[in-house]
């Protein structure tokens, strides 16, 4: 059975005579899925529910005994707070720029990975390396590279004569955010490239051959064959990266801790600070729910734009 036919089967109503088999399969499916459901939903659903409750109360201490019910008050507090919106703005910037860069560079690298290279195996091995570097190590590494006094970037640019004086790359809020994006992009492009490569290899070679016979130019082939065939991979990468970028926390925590001037305080970092540093658990919980809503909306928008109904592809 091919993927396409499986999809069709799902959509069509099941014949009545298979009803019994369906029940039997349902039972088996129940037992097969039980461990996964327990392991995932058990760990997530109850805490999410707790957090939802907390978000409706004023909770100012980890040990709070007096916790007045405030309804949607915490949500209103958050939504009327300019710091929150500033952090959303930064997060959107981070998300859009990093995802866009990752996608463009990822396409190029995927093309190279797919190209007829000498030592292709070596090239693939090298490209996979940044992906495997743990985020915290990546953050520490780039923090060292961007160091204002002895970092490699300053040394390189000065010795090449591109800049005269050592720069404090992380001292300006906008610049710092871009530098964090750079570090994130470096680590993530290989991941994106491999995803897109998987899509590229699925394109039947006959299509290229046909295009070549038509003497189509490369940009044309790219636009009319490669891109449409890649839409599924691109949409997955877009959704995955958007979700990840919108939740970004660890690289911020390790590289800049939100500074300078909150310039790199993304919304997940803001939520963390609010909940744990300020002990405003009610408001912190509300923020994390708002983040969830943002992510769902963004994903829905992407999927709609890419004309795909869901992520599962089943």
């Amino acid at each position: 059975m091919t993927v396409a036919s499986a999809k069709k089967d799902l959509g069509s109503p099941l014949p009545v005579k298979r009803r019994k088999g369906f029940d039997k399969q349902g039972k088996l499916a129940f037992w097969l899925l039980l461990p996964a459901c327990v392991a995932v939903f058990g760990v997530i659903i109850y805490p999410m529910f707790r957090t939802l409750i907390v978000s409706l109360f004023q909770v100012n201490s980890a040990l709070a005994s007096v916790t007045p019910f405030v309804g949607l008050g915490n949500y209103l507090t958050v939504l009327s707070n300019s710091d929150f919106w500033a952090s959303i703005g930064r997060t959107l910037y981070f998300t859009l720029v990093s995802t866009a860069l990752e996608l463009i560079l990822g396409l190029i690298v995927a093309g190279l990975l797919n190209a007829n290279l000498k030592w292709r195996w070596l090239f693939r091995t090298i490209v996979v390396i940044p992906w495997a570097i743990p985020t915290i190590v990546n953050a520490a590494m780039w923090k060292g590279i961007f160091n204002a006094q002895y970092g490699a970037l300053n040394a390189l640019l000065t010795q090449l004569g591109i800049i005269q004086n050592y720069q404090a790359w992380l001292a300006d809020p906008t610049l710092a955010l871009n530098m964090v994006i750079l570090a994130d992009v470096w680590k993530t492009v290989p991941l994106v490239a491999f995803f897109l490569l998987a899509g590229l290899t699925a394109i039947p070679p006959e299509l290229y051959e046909a295009a070549k016979l038509d003497r189509a130019s490369w940009p044309r082939i790219f636009r009319s064959i490669v891109l449409p065939m890649l839409v599924p991979s691109i949409s997955i990468v877009l959704v995955l990266r958007t979700v990840e970028a919108f939740k970004v926390f660890d690289i911020i925590y390790a590289m800049t801790r939100g500074g300078p001037v909150n310039g790199t305080a993304t919304v997940a970092y803001y939520a963390y600070e609010t909940a744990f540093s300020d002990q405003n658990f009610g408001v912190g919980s509300a923020i994390s729910y708002i983040i969830t809503i943002f992510i769902l909306v963004l994903s829905a928008v992407y999927l709609r734009l890419l004309r795909r109904s869901d992520l599962s592809l089943l």
Binding site: A148, Q149, Y166, A168, L170, A171, T256, G259
Partner: peptide, 11 residues
Amino acid sequence: DPASLTFLEDD
């Protein structure tokens, strides 16, 4: 040093 804005005590 303008880099002071990125410094903790140890830096």
